[in-house]
């Protein structure tokens, strides 16, 4: 009970500190500028693709350029591409690219959340007053909250842009799809906030913490790319031989990457989406538990 109370106190102080920090504003501006750039590029591309499709007499089906783009971004699964096809390309592009860059934003936001206090030893004023569990959880939750706020602001901006520029996209549709896109980004953000906190507890120097964080992200990216490449190869083999080859270890390596599971959350199949969501939650929980364990065990 006392740990919960202290976690709440630390969460409040850390959140106020983060919201006053110029760094959060800078990351938000970067995120918004990046999204605006993607929106403009995606808008132009979508317009060109539509004109091309109209000229060739293609409809908006699975053979359209948009479907090919979605297959490239989200995988070759027909049911997934079909479910995403009615949504504006700009929303999906910003969502997908946002997911790719979100871990880096979170790392930049929180790499020094614990490590800077270890370096200056200011954490010593806190560890004699409260448990290290409350410290790690309070800091991780504050970082996660800032990330969620950031994601919400950016997604609201993108949806507003799409509603005002895409004639077929209605508010009802937006309300229907937004929770799933926001939920996926939020789950990834939670996991990355926990991972960043873990890296920050491991290193006494913020620079080392950031390096560790980016090394981990690079590792996850490599695992995801490796698994996804192996999956594409398997699907191509399946198409060529009309037989279903077994899933190899190369493809299973992709399961280690959070990005593999964030793609699962988008599937129209509820069981599959829930599994993806649960794995992302588990990832966040494991990283947070590891951050607590490291902070409890280490010298400060």
């Amino acid at each position: 009970m006392q740990t919960l109370k202290d976690t709440w106190t630390i969460f409040g102080a850390e959140l106020r500190r983060a919201l006053k920090s110029p760094r959060v504003l800078l990351v938000l501006l970067l995120y918004l500028a990046f999204s605006a750039g993607v929106m403009l590029a995606a808008g132009a591309l979508a317009h060109q693709a539509q004109m091309q499709a109209d000229a060739q007499g293609q409809g908006g089906g699975l053979e359209s350029p948009k479907a090919a783009l979605l297959a490239m971004l989200f995988g070759q699964d027909r049911s997934l591409v079909e479910s995403l096809l009615p949504l504006p390309a700009v929303v999906l592009l910003v969502f997908k690219l946002g997911l790719i860059f979100l871990p880096a934003y979170v790392a930049v936001l929180g790499f020094d959340t614990v490590s800077a206090e270890l370096q200056t030893r200011s954490l010593r004023y806190l560890t004699v007053r409260t448990s290290r569990t409350a410290l790690a959880l309070g800091k991780a939750l504050a970082l996660a909250t800032v990330v969620l706020l950031l994601v919400t602001v950016v997604q609201l901006g993108v949806f507003s842009y799409a509603l005002s520029t895409v004639p077929d996209f209605s508010t009802t549709e937006a309300w229907h799809v937004w929770p799933r896109l926001w939920g996926t980004t939020a789950l990834v953000g939670l996991g990355m906030a926990a991972l960043t906190t873990l890296c920050s507890t491991l290193a006494r120097s913020p620079a080392l913490s950031l390096t560790l964080n980016f090394t981990a992200l690079l590792g996850f990216w490599a695992a995801g790319a490796f698994g996804s490449g192996a999956r594409v190869m398997r699907l191509m083999e399946q198409q060529a031989t009309q037989q279903e080859p077994p899933v190899g270890w190369q493809e299973r390596i992709g399961l280690l990457a959070p990005s593999t599971w964030s793609a699962e959350v988008l599937y129209p199949d509820t069981a599959r989406a829930l599994t993806g969501a649960l794995v992302l939650l588990l990832f966040a929980a494991v990283c947070a538990a590891a951050a607590v364990a490291v902070l409890r065990a280490r010298d400060v």
């Binding site: 006392q2 202290d6 500190r17 200011s122 004023y125 409260t130």
Partner: peptide
């Protein structure tokens, strides 16, 4: 032991900077 020193111990560490965020 986590939280065992709460309200019991006051410490002036020699080389720890005061937290600068408040």
């Amino acid at each position: 032991v986590p939280g065992s020193l709460k309200g019991v111990l006051g410490v002036l560490p020699q080389d720890a900077a005061l937290p600068g965020y408040l």
